[in-house]
Amino acid sequence: MISHIWTVVWRDWMVLKRRLGRYILSRMVSPIFYLVAFGWGLGRNMTMTHGSYLDFIVPGIIALNSMNISFNAVGTPVNMSRLYHKTLEEYLLAPISAISYVIGKILSGILRGIISSAVIVVLATIFGAKLSLNGWFIVTLILNCAIFAALGLVAALYMNSHEEMSNFNIYILTPMSFLCATFFLPNQLPGLLHWIIEILPLTQASYALRQTSTSGGFPETALGIMIIYFVGLVWIGTRKMKQLQD
């Protein structure tokens, strides 16, 4: 099973390796605009309870960016390979278990999410953000990538067109990018909305990343909630992968 997981990752790594330079460069674009707009432009004269607004939003930007990258790194190619290129058949016909494929794809999604997060950390430091990287920060980040890579996989297996896939981005990921404690704390929002946002995985990731990057410490509640999401999505993805027949 380990070797099958590695095979799935190996394929994605071969593809990524060929355009690693271009990939890293392209990953710098949107974070730079976030940092300029919210860090320099809006945040220059704003202070939060613990330090500058820039320090506040950098973990939020890392959370939302790693979400988008991991989701799309898995979702788009898997959906295309299932519906258009038909390359998913190669895996369905092979004597490998569904879960090997699922885990392998999630690991590829994590890899891309982490590369792109590393780019942001470097950029944010250049912009003058104070960020302390530590073990729990990295654990939270990996878990966040894992959740959204898994969600990307689930979406790719359920959505039956490219359009549905992009609707998933529009109706689910974009709202989360803005609302899940990335740019502001959701406790300022009306009751029900606040409550809904509070249980979303990205909110928990933002909290945990912010906590670990400023005060350090172990974000147990957030990690607990995130693990539940992760396990649930892996289970749904594996089950769907097993039943993927016409």
């Binding site: 095979t7 593809v15 290129h85 038909k86 390359t87 092979a94």
Partner: peptide, 24 residues
């Protein structure tokens, strides 16, 4: 299969290598 389902993002050799790895 009747339709082409090679991995167009890989080389010819890599396509075979992927298959070989999947089949252990």
């Amino acid at each position: 299969p009747q339709h082409l389902n090679l991995d167009i993002e890989l080389t010819a050799r890599e396509n075979l290598e992927l298959h070989g790895r999947l089949h252990g």
